[in-house]
Amino acid sequence: MAPSNDLLTMTPKGLFCEQGNFYVDPWRAVDHAVITHAHADHARWGSKKYLAADTSAEVLRIRMGEKADLRFQPLGQSQTINGVRVTFYPAGHILGSAQVKIEKAGYSIVVSGDYKRNSDPTCQPFEPVRCNTFITESTFGLPIYRWPDPQTVFDGINQWWKSNQGSGKTSILLAYSLGKAQRLLSGIDASIGPIYTHGAVEKLNAGYREAGVALPETTFVGEVDPKEIDWSQSLVVAPPSAVGGPWAKKFGKLSVAMASGWMQIRGTRRRRSMDAGFILSDHVDWADLMQTIHETEAENIWVTHGYSDVVVRYLREQGFNAKVVETEFTGEQLEGDTEPAS
C-alpha cells in the first residue's frame, strides 16, 4: 500500500507528515508539532507551533510554559492541514491525552501515543478508532502484564495507609507527577487522613482542578512547617525521584510505596526496596493491547517503545502486517523518574 508510506514517515526528528507539513510528537524542534499528550517524552520544548486536543490545554500550558505557541482543537472535530485531515480522539492515558488520526484520500493512520483501557475518572476514556495503520506503544507488551481491577488496587492503598497510621509511619506514595499522581488522588479514600504533595505534583493538581477534574484537598509540603505536622497520619504523594534525598528526611519514619505497572514483577519491587508496590498503570496491559489492535481493524500495525520486537513477532504470527518503528519515546520508565526533582 503506497499511501501509508507517503502519509507518515519516520525521520530523525520524529514521525513526519510531509503532505501536511507537520510532525507528531517530534523529539527535535520543528515548525509544526502535533502533540498527543503532555508527558515530557512526547511534548518537547522548542518547536514553533503546537497543536493538541483542547482537553490537554491546562496541563500542556503548565508543562510548556507561557511562551509556547499552543493551539487546541476539540476532540472528535477535524481540521484540514495542507490537505491532510487531522482529528483527535481520547486515549485515556492522562488528562488530555489523545490519539491523532491523520487521513488523506481515504487512507488513515492513527498515532495513539500512550493509552490505556482501564477506568480512570481523571480523563476521557479511550475510544477505538478504525484506521488503516495503527501506531501503538508496547510499554507493557508481554503476557505477564495483566492489570488488576483498579478498585482492588485502591483498597490495597487505603489499607496500607491505615496500617502505617497504626504503626506511626508516614505513608509516601511515589507516582509520576503528571497523570498517575492525580489518578491516585482521585481514587484513594481521602477521609483516612490529610494528604500532602510534592511541589511537582501540586503544580499539576492545579491544572487538573482548573480543567474541572475533582481531586481531594491537598497541601503542598513546602507550604507548611514540617515540625508542626503529625506526618504519621498523612499521605505524601511525590515523584519517584523525591525519595533517597534530603527532601524525605523531614517525615521521620517512612513507609514507601510505588504505584506502577512495573510493580507486577516481584524482582522489580524488591530491587527498588519498596515497602509496598501497587500495580496501577496508565498503559495497556497485554490483553488490552491485543483487544485494541483488533478493534481498530487496521491492516498495518506499527509498534513503538517497549517490547516492540516481541509484540511485532506475535502480531505477525497472528497474521498482521506489523513492524517495529524506532522512536525516542520512553513510555513509563523503570529506572527512576525523568522529571526534574523540583
Binding site: 508481554l142 503476557p143 505477564i144 507486577q264 514483577i265 516481584r266 524482582g267 516481541v310 506475535y314
Partner: peptide, 18 residues
C-alpha cells in the same frame, strides 16, 4: 513468547503464575 516472559521475570514459578 513464554521464553521472552521468563527472560523478563527471571523466575519460573513467577512467570507461570503471571
Amino acid at each position: 513468547l513464554f521464553e521472552e516472559c521468563y527472560d523478563r521475570v527471571g523466575d519460573l514459578a513467577e512467570t507461570i503464575s503471571l
